[in-house]
């Protein structure tokens, strides 16, 4: 299924303007300054249950641990790569509730309750996902280090429907740098997979 109407807009269309007015500043709830938050609300260690590729993982982490480092260093899911750790390269792209995100910019704690999909979760047993197959057939990689992120990004790009033309694919795949510069083949692979997935 292609996402033709973003989630937020659908929800907003269901809501009336009365709800909007209630949320506007004039009606902002005043909170008493005396209500200091309880220190216990803040945790120094967090017990997490992360759902990755359909499997539940329990782990206890410091809040500063990112989703990327949790996947790589604690769950041995090393297919997701760290290229910059700043959101500047896209190598760590995963799907969170079906949407592509840079896992280096997500705290593991924030990912609790979300459905995480990584490169390891795409194939059906030994049968690669059509997007994985398209990357192989189009020769859409060289060193392979950015490839997991490219494929996860391609999954979302196709799902979002941003595959109408080579130009559109190029723009919507530009959050994934490839220093080997397999860009023309990546564009071709995304187009081919989009065609196959209809």
């Amino acid at each position: 299924m292609k996402i033709t109407s973003p989630k937020v807009s659908r929800r907003s269309l269901l809501r009336g303007s009365a709800a909007a007015a209630a949320a506007s500043l004039a009606h902002a709830r005043q909170v008493s300054a005396q209500n200091a938050p309880e220190e216990s609300a803040f945790e120094a260690w967090i017990d997490l249950r992360l759902t990755v590729n359909g499997q539940a993982h329990a782990l206890t982490v410091e809040p500063r641990v990112t989703l990327l480092d949790a996947l790589r260093e604690r769950m041995q899911l090393t297919g997701t790569k760290k290229g910059c750790n700043r959101g500047e390269c896209g190598a760590c792209t995963v799907l969170m509730d079906g949407r592509r995100v840079n896992s280096c910019l997500v705290l593991a704690a924030s990912a609790e309750g979300r459905k995480i999909t990584t490169i390891e979760g795409l194939a059906d047993g030994d049968t690669p996902h059509p997007v994985q197959r398209a990357f192989a057939e189009a020769d859409a990689f060289q060193c392979g280090f950015c490839t997991s992120g490219q494929i996860m990004s391609a999954m979302a790009c196709i799902e979002e429907g941003h595959t109408g033309s080579p130009e559109e694919i190029r723009e919507w795949m530009s959050g994934n740098l490839c220093r080997c510069s397999a860009y023309p083949q990546i564009t071709a692979a995304v187009a081919a997979a989009a065609e196959e997935l209809g």
């Binding site: 792209t93 969170m96 949407r99 592509r100 910019l105 994934n176």
Partner: peptide
């Protein structure tokens, strides 16, 4: 702005 991934966050 930024990339498709970052704009999702």
């Amino acid at each position: 702005a930024a990339s498709a991934q970052i704009r999702n966050l």
